[in-house]
């Protein structure tokens, strides 16, 4: 996750050291290759092969059932042009961006940081209790929490309607996106909280005290003393959380993409087209497009990280 210790200045006698570094354990090339071979085979079989297979499926009309299940035909880039022209794909991409932006970038990060910041100087007992509760949301199995949230948001006799005194409000039908965004914030805040708790430990207390002595407001302290120290952590957290959220399938357990596709994020869209409608070739094409979006997100963050270091 975090790069190894950087070496800004090589020592004077770097040349022999480097030769040694090339074969530091003295295995020799063949034995070294033999050691990594099993791992590489696993990577090949479970990562590279499925990726290439997806690429291949994406140019066929392969289906779950019917004639095309046994004899898929090559259709060229038609699946890809169909995906890019599909209004349902555009809607889904937009919903996914809302989901990532709302729940991961804004929700989890801000709330996670806020909890970490507020809990920083609380008594250990309070801190532990809050952390345990937040973590609980994270470690419970997805199917269990989905069921809890269905019970919470249910139209007839849901907990939320009982609390608010709004019987009959169909939260999942009237506000499907808001529901899954709030759900995902609740679910995923724990990770950001843990990461920021660790990061805040890296901020020298003297900086904070200096800021306090200089009469800085909380906002000024955060902006000028804390943020510069934890910027790397923020970017790392954003990168991981964005990618997880982008590919998260749990919304399906709560709204199943409905009503009328109004909460159909990309992972749900792939599932419903590939397995629901049996269009495996088309689904593979969407998956590849998703992979490219993932790469774009990752590249953007990595660039930002590199710029920070430069």
């Amino acid at each position: 996750m975090v790069p190894a210790t950087s070496t800004p200045a090589e020592p004077a006698g770097a040349a022999p050291a480097r030769a040694e570094a090339a074969d530091v354990v003295g295995l020799g090339r063949r034995r070294a290759a033999a050691f990594v071979a099993p791992a590489l085979v696993l990577v090949l079989v479970f990562l590279v092969f499925p990726a290439l297979w997806t690429l291949y499926l994406g140019v066929t009309d392969y289906r779950l059932t019917g004639l095309a299940a046994t004899r898929p035909h090559f259709v060229g880039v038609r699946n890809y042009t169909d995906v890019l022209a599909d209004g349902r794909f555009h809607d889904s991409l937009w919903l996914t961006l809302q989901f990532v932006g709302g729940s991961a970038v804004l929700g989890q990060t801000v709330l996670g940081f806020a909890v970490a910041w507020v809990m920083r100087e609380r008594p250990a007992a309070v801190r532990r209790t809050v952390e345990a509760l937040v973590l609980l949301a994270w470690i419970l199995p997805g199917s269990v929490v989905a069921f809890l949230w269905l019970a919470l948001l249910d139209r007839d006799g849901g907990t939320l309607n009982t609390l608010l005194g709004t019987p009959g409000t169909a939260w999942l039908l009237d506000h499907p996106m808001a529901s899954i965004i709030v759900f995902n914030i609740w679910r995923g805040t724990a990770f950001s909280m843990m990461l920021y708790t660790a990061a805040l430990g890296n901020v020298p207390p003297s900086h904070l005290e200096t800021a306090k002595l200089a009469g800085a407001s909380t906002w000024q302290t955060l902006r000028d003393a804390v943020l510069p120290k934890i910027r790397g952590h923020v970017l790392t957290s954003l990168l991981l959380v964005s990618l997880w959220t982008f590919n998260d399938f749990t919304p399906y357990l709560i709204t199943a993409g409905g009503p009328e596709n109004r909460s159909e994020v990309l992972s749900v869209y792939v599932y419903r087209t590939a397995l629901g409608e049996g269009r495996l070739g088309f689904g593979a094409a969407i998956s590849l497009v998703m992979l490219l979006v993932n790469l774009a997100i990752a590249t953007a963050y990595l660039r930002a990280l590199r710029r920070r270091r430069a």
Binding site: R30, R31, A34, F35, A37, P38, V41, L42, L44, V45
Partner: peptide
């Protein structure tokens, strides 16, 4: 030293199983 042939066989086995 791990025998190279053994490693290759292991790799093949893994791939085959997959």
């Amino acid at each position: 030293r791990p025998h190279p042939r053994l490693t290759a066989a292991l790799a093949l086995l893994l791939a085959g199983a997959a």
